[in-house]
Write a protein that binds this DNA or RNA. Structure first.
Lengths: 226, 226
DNA sequence: TTTAGAAAAAATATATATAAAATTTATAGG
DNA sequence: CCTATAAATTTTATATATATTTTTTCTAAA
């Protein structure tokens, strides 16, 4: 079996200060994101150890971590496989995001510092600059949401939302491929930050809830098209 | 150092079909719950391997898992220690529970099946039967909340709430030790199930939010007494 | 004393070897 | 041709050995 292609000088290649286990985890996440590893596909310690040129021990740790994150599941009669989310589970995922992201925005409206709000605005402006590139949009979108999680100043919320974000990798194509979604999402981000800046908790919650619902609708559209 | 006392035939001794790693994890959780391992205390692979009479490998896995669950943290200059939650973090924990438990109750009002509602009532009745025993109350309380999580029919919510429940172990003494808390909590549980049975989502959410807030107040009371 | 730095000690990360499970394949009986 | 069972194979779990890294201890200079 062929080894994972590891693009050299890209921003995706952070480097060797990482433990081998952490590195393996990153590589696997990236392989899932890029589609080199597809949902349902089997994953074996031995294979990965060989492909990544390390021993089985750190691979094992990475696999355990991915299991606890729900990206890999132990399928009876099949062994470890990349998790396949069915429609129901995807809806549960968005339902959860709706609750948690709106909570994060609401808390940010109460607790975000001026520099944190500034950072959110910066990200929106970066996103504005690449409205035509769906992948870049998705990247900046992730950064925005991450900054929002931090601004909530609740560590459990932060951790859980990060975990949900990772699970989103399993869904494949970004919803920014849906025509018009980029522009709408950008507007929604602006409205969220406006509400946070005003300290309007309820508005921040409501707008964010609608933002996630819109993303969910775009996702359903993508699913129904195949 | 002395070995962990492992009470034999109690309900806490599930047995050997478990992998060693899973067993180690259980033992550690139990040691934390029982106070044999206290927050801030150092935890070493080698020690545990010796105490549990197994090799370092499964101990390592258990420790990693506890780390990802937040029960153990890697303190710079000190190594692995049992996590110590400061006041702020405890508040964040209850804030998160407030959001998630109320969401779970709201979803249960929409999706719980008749047998699931029946199970909730059974648990309330069991709890009624041991109003004088704080530990037993705490046990039945955990079962009740667990059943509530399941009734929400959202796997991400279930998983996250279970994780929060585990983190609660770090808080030590149960809030059922606060005079009158048992009786009040029981009434609140009844009100929650009533709302669920009626399919009244908003009521289920509101009552549950208040239930968690009451628990938080009891917790604060415990903290302030030392 | 205090503090920087080297040496020693301890602990963790990784590799590899062995044991135990689980899965697949092969074979005999229906 | 199907089914059940056992042998063979693969894969994972655990143990142990080795390599790195981190912490501690000791020493010497300020």
């Amino acid at each position: 079996m062929k080894e994972f292609t590891e693009p050299q000088s890209t921003k995706t290649s952070p480097r060797s200060s990482l433990s081998r286990a952490a590195h393996a985890h990153q590589q696997l996440m990236e392989a899932i994101r890029s589609g080199q590893l597809k949902p349902g596909q089997r994953v074996r310690e031995t294979d990965l150890a060989e492909q990544l040129q390390i021993s089985r021990t750190p691979v094992r740790e990475a696999l355990h971590r991915l299991q606890s994150e729900g990206l890999i599941v132990n399928a009876p009669q099949r062994g470890l496989i990349i998790a396949e989310l069915d429609y129901q589970q995807i809806m549960e995922l968005y339902q959860m995001r709706e609750v948690l992201e709106s909570t994060a925005a609401g808390l940010a409206a109460k607790h975000a510092s001026e520099p944190e709000i500034y950072a959110l605005r910066e990200m929106i402006s970066k996103q504005q600059d690449c409205l035509d590139d769906a992948e870049a949009q998705a990247h900046h979108n992730r950064l925005f949401h991450n900054a929002l999680y931090h601004a909530s100043h609740n560590r459990y919320l932060l951790k859980t939302l990060n975990s949900l974000k990772d699970a989103m990798v399993l869904l494949g194509a970004t919803t920014y491929k849906v025509p018009g979604r980029s522009e709408t999402a950008l507007e929604e981000h602006r409205a969220i930050v406006d509400a946070i800046e005003k300290g309007d908790r309820t508005a921040a919650e409501d707008i964010t809830r609608e933002h996630i619902r819109a993303a969910q609708k775009a996702r359903i559209e993508l699913i129904n098209q195949g």
